[in-house]
Computed example of a mutant assay.
Amino acid sequence: MNFHWRIHGLDHDLTQRGLVMGIVNVTPDSFSDGGRYLDTGRAVEHALTLVAEGADILDIGGESTRPGADPVEEAEELKRVLPVIRALRSETKTLISIDTMKANVARAALEAGADIINDVTGLRGDPMMLRVAAETEAGLVVMHMIGTPRTMQKQPEYGDVVAEVQAYFAERLRILAELGIAPERVVLDPGFGFGKTLEHNIALMKALPTLAVQGRPVLVGISRKSMISKLLETDDVDDREWPTVALTSHTRELGARIVRVHEVKPNVEAMRMTEAILGQ
């Protein structure tokens, strides 16, 4: 199967070479690096380091989506992310995604030079987000999540988590198509850790090859997630780095085409080695 992602009218071929998305949290409260890159200068410097290490995409976020996180006012989110996006657009041609649930933030970010909307609500949280998507040619990341970041981990329940995520993706693609949004613009994110127990996450991991609904590429965001600590029985976030690299290799072998990670260099190396072994 061939995989392409259309961003601003340009098709990116992901069939043989997957993409690594580097995380740049411009927040005071993200679960693993909150506050470290809240300053614009430090955020830009960090992002350019990720580019030098091989990042294909820079994912800029100004609102934490960790479990239990409080919402951020739109004005504050704009204040955090726009200077970073503008500065990066003047420094690099690397793809930039805006990690936001707010339509106005997404539109402003695209106007500042971003290329992709990465919305953890699957373009459902803000009723105007679908309009922004339809009126632009941005790439789109449609993620699965139940509830909100504040509530998503309060006893999430599914009859069949795999079947429900598959059905959700099919429904979102149908709605987007009805609005004239080409499916080629969409990649799908099963939302590991977003309204899922450890058992749900493992079930989705095992079923990853089946989640490429309608042939759309799958993005995996599992970097430093708590499921790693639960499996390894450790509370140290630093202990999650090499397991993340292992999961990058494993999920690429299972068919994921994009991984969203904090540490870029080792994950790029893991993806390229896996692709070489796969003969892709």
Rank of each mutant, 00 (worst) to 15 (best):
F3C: 07
H4I: 12
R6L: 15
I7T: 08
G9S: 05
G9A: 10
L14I: 12
G18E: 08
L19K: 08
V20R: 11
M21P: 07
T27G: 02
P28F: 06
P28Q: 04
P28T: 03
D29V: 03
G35R: 00
R36W: 00
R36N: 00
L38Y: 10
D39L: 03
A43G: 03
E45A: 15
E45N: 11
L48E: 05
L48A: 02
A52I: 08
A52L: 00
G54W: 11
A55I: 06
I57H: 13
I57Y: 13
L58V: 13
L58Y: 11
L58Q: 04
A69M: 01
A69L: 05
P71E: 09
V72G: 00
E77Y: 03
P83A: 14
V84R: 14
V84T: 14
I85Y: 09
I85F: 09
L88R: 13
S90H: 10
S90N: 07
S97C: 05
I98V: 13
D99E: 06
M101P: 00
M101S: 14
N104G: 13
V105F: 02
R107H: 05
A108T: 05
A108S: 12
A109C: 06
E111G: 10
I117Q: 05
I117Y: 04
N118R: 11
D119A: 10
T121E: 01
G122A: 03
G125M: 02
G125T: 06
P127L: 11
M128Y: 11
M128Q: 15
E135A: 14
T136D: 10
L140K: 10
M143Y: 03
H144W: 00
G147S: 08
P149N: 10
R150D: 12
T151D: 14
Q153L: 09
Q153M: 06
Q155C: 12
D160K: 10
V162Q: 03
A163S: 09
A167M: 02
A167F: 04
Y168D: 09
R172E: 15
R172L: 15
R174K: 15
L176C: 11
A177W: 06
A177G: 12
E178S: 15
I181S: 07
P183N: 14
E184G: 13
E184V: 09
R185S: 06
V186G: 07
L188R: 00
P190Y: 03
G191S: 05
F194D: 03
E199M: 08
I202Y: 06
A203D: 03
L204F: 13
M205S: 14
K206G: 12
A207V: 12
L208C: 09
A212R: 09
P217S: 15
P217C: 12
V220T: 02
I222E: 01
R224A: 05
K225I: 04
L232T: 11
T234R: 00
D236W: 00
D236V: 07
V237W: 01
D239A: 14
W242D: 04
V245Q: 00
V245K: 03
T248L: 02
H250A: 12
H250K: 04
T251I: 01
L254G: 04
L254I: 09
L254P: 02
G255V: 08
G255Q: 03
G255E: 02
R260P: 13
V261F: 12
E263F: 14
E263Q: 15
K265L: 15
K265I: 08
P266E: 11
R272V: 15
M273N: 04
M273P: 00
M273Y: 00
T274N: 05
E275W: 03
A276H: 00
G279A: 11
